[in-house]
Design a binder for these strands. Sequence first.
DNA 1: ATCTATTCCTGGCTGC
DNA 2: TGCAGCCAGGAATAGA
Length: 268
Amino acid sequence: MPELPEVETIVRELATFLRGRRIVQARVMCARISRGSGAEIEKALAGASIEAVERHGKHIVLTLDHGRLLIHLGMTGKLLFDVDDQFVRASFVLDDGRTLLFSDVRRFGRVEWSAELPERVARLGPDAATVGEAEFMERLAGRTTKIKNLLLDQNVLRGMGNIYTDEALFRAGIHPLTPANRLSRNRLRRLHGVVRDLLAEAIEHRGSSISDYVDASGARGSFQDRHRVYGRAGQPCLECRTPVERIVVAQRGTHFCPRCQKEIVIKG
DNA sequence: ATCTATTCCTGGCTGC
DNA sequence: TGCAGCCAGGAATAGA
């Protein structure tokens, strides 16, 4: 499941192949994965040249000579060159003869053409990997919302997903259910540092391959080997040997150490 | 303004 | 071996 480090890995690699290339022909084979009509996307992309490939949160943004192509990988989306599988939902033939394919088993991914960065994407929170301490504090401090929900909210911070949220909260020693306004400013500052370091480290390791994530070259990441709580329910905490617990928060499986991340008791 | 639940989607896994 | 039933969750949407 691609989150910020996985998308960053993909974007860095794609950029080397795509920058300066021209899209000869685009095809959208699955209506569900396109935002707006597939035919319009195909028309807008035909002949477009790619000037830049960048990441905006978890979105992949190709800046074209006219307009932008946005790709969101959802849960199982992949971008691969010259492979054919039964889950290819869109294809982009390039002027070097190669074809970039968007494959997505579960069709949670999206492809979109837009003249400018769409408003709902442009207004997302600051990038989780580069947000400064002051802005991080401004976004989170004083909020009554549970810290896990806040970290997952792309309007608060863009780029975090379920895996890195659980890992960050473990590293910061914060229980996922803690309302943000219960955290001291020092604890929030520590969380900021943890988030930045965690994402940088994960990018260095080319992301986490949990189920079937691979980058544009088909290579897996290795950061899953460094997860301390995600996917480790029932196994001993790597710090204190207490079994890692799994609960549901924000409708997502949430992993934490009940000893290292103390339960916050809210009195009535 | 906030927060929660539901929906989409299907391969893979569990258990009978 | 087969199959029903459940699980994974990003983000839009509806509802409280």
